[in-house]
Structure formats: C-alpha cells, structure tokens
Nucleic acid binder design. Sequence first.
DNA 1: CCAGTAAACGCATATATCTGCCTATTGACA
DNA 2: TGTCAATAGGCAGATATATGCGTTTACTGG
Lengths: 121, 121
Amino acid sequence: MRRKPSELLPIELSILASAVELARIGTSEFYGYAIAKEIRDGQGAKQLTGHGTLYRALDRLAKLGLVESRWEEPELAARDDRPRRRLYRVTALGERALADGRVPDAAPAATTKLGHGLATS
Amino acid sequence: MRRKPSELLPIELSILASAVELARIGTSEFYGYAIAKEIRDGQGAKQLTGHGTLYRALDRLAKLGLVESRWEEPELAARDDRPRRRLYRVTALGERALADGRVPDAAPAATTKLGHGLATS
DNA sequence: CCAGTAAACGCATATATCTGCCTATTGACA
DNA sequence: TGTCAATAGGCAGATATATGCGTTTACTGG
C-alpha cells in the first residue's frame, strides 16, 4: 500500500482511540485481543476479520514509538488460567499522534536538520 | 454412545499407546496438542478434526485414573514463548489398562466385595 | 429385538498471539 | 498519467487448552 509515513491508518487511529478511551476510564494498559473485540463491536475499522491485521498494526505502532509493550507476568496469566497477554500502553508520542491525526516524525530532520540528510544509523 | 465402562475407546487406546511409546523413548510426560499431532499423523483414530474430542478423551482418562496431569510451570512456557501446556503422564493403572485392553475397575468390588453392594460414596 | 438414553463425536468458538502467503491498494516517480 | 513497488489487508494455520451444542452411536433394559 506504500504508506505515507506521516499519516495514521484508520485501524491505527481506532487502536489509539480505544486505548486512550480505556486509559481515561482507568485502564492504562491494554492488549490485542481486547482491542480487537472493542473495535469489532464498535465497527471501528469496518470489521477486522482475523486478528493478524490488528497484531501487525500494533507492531507498526510500536515501531513508530506510539505504543510500548511488555509481556504480562506469566504467573498472573497462569492464575487466571488463560494465555499470556502482551500489554500495551500509549506513549506521549502516541497521544500527540492521535490528537494531531498524524505521526510526529520521530527523527526530527525538520527543525535541526543536522548534516542535512546524512545517514544517522 | 452409552459407554461400556470396562472398555477403552479407540482414541483412548491411541492416546495411551502414543504416550507409552513416548515414555519408552524417554519422554515421560506428554501434552494434548503433541498427542493430537501424533495421532493425526499416524492416522490413529481416523483423524480427529477438532481438538475438543482429544481433550475430552484426556479428561476421561484422568477421571478413570489412567493418566495424571499437572500444569507446566508458567515461566517455562513464557521462556519458550508459547501457551502453557498441561502435562500428562500415564499411571501404572493406565499401563495395565493398555496392556489388558480394558479398564481395571478402579473400585474393586470384584474380589473383596465388602458389604456387597452398599453405596461406598 | 427394539426403543430409549447416555455418552462420545464433530463443529464452532473462546482465549491470546503470531506468521506465511497471496491479493489489493496506493503513494511516488518517471 | 500511468506504471512500479512497497505495504496493508485478508485468509489460513500454528501453538495450547477448553467448553457449548447438536448429532450420532451404541449399550442396556424391557
């Protein structure tokens, strides 16, 4: 789909919106399956059929630095007798991205532009 | 299907056989999914389509005392990054059942027959 | 021997995450 | 503007276990 790097896709917006809403309610961390259900119920992104799409979207958001993730403590999942969850939280960058509706470019070549275009790796 | 209590069903025989074979090789404990694959590959029980059938068979074997189960340590599953397994091992009773091809009645009303027929619950 | 019923089976789905593979879409560039 | 390529989406399946529900099978009792 040759993504435009500054724009958020509908599904990504849905995720961030759901997550921020959850955080407002009091749940600071979320996980894929729960978001999937919420999006599906709310018709957020015209129904995601499988879950693959969502998990890949989460990967993208993580790569963009808009969310952070950690694995749930294994004992907790064991106690609740269910598969282990990967817990996500929206970063400050993520919140800004949602508010702006666009990705604040993480490597700010915008203002400073050191060496203008030199490979920073 | 109105089970005859003394007989083992094909799937139950398959499970016990696979498990005992595994034990002979050196793996004393097994788990549902692995057995499912082995049975499916070996055409043990004319292909089990879903896994529900197998897990219920395992429950029955456990209830009969032919296998024992325990949950895998959560940290181990976490380290291997996969869902937690329920580990089974064939009991002595189970081995005997497999050898005999029938269930040695667990509550031996056979020989002793104390009080002949009194409710033992 | 036949009817009634208990129990096993098959299929679907829930819980959770992730990957592969093919298709559809779209931004970028000529 | 039209083509190319990068990427997102969709479907399926792997990893594990478990339950609900309708159908089928087979045992048991009359």
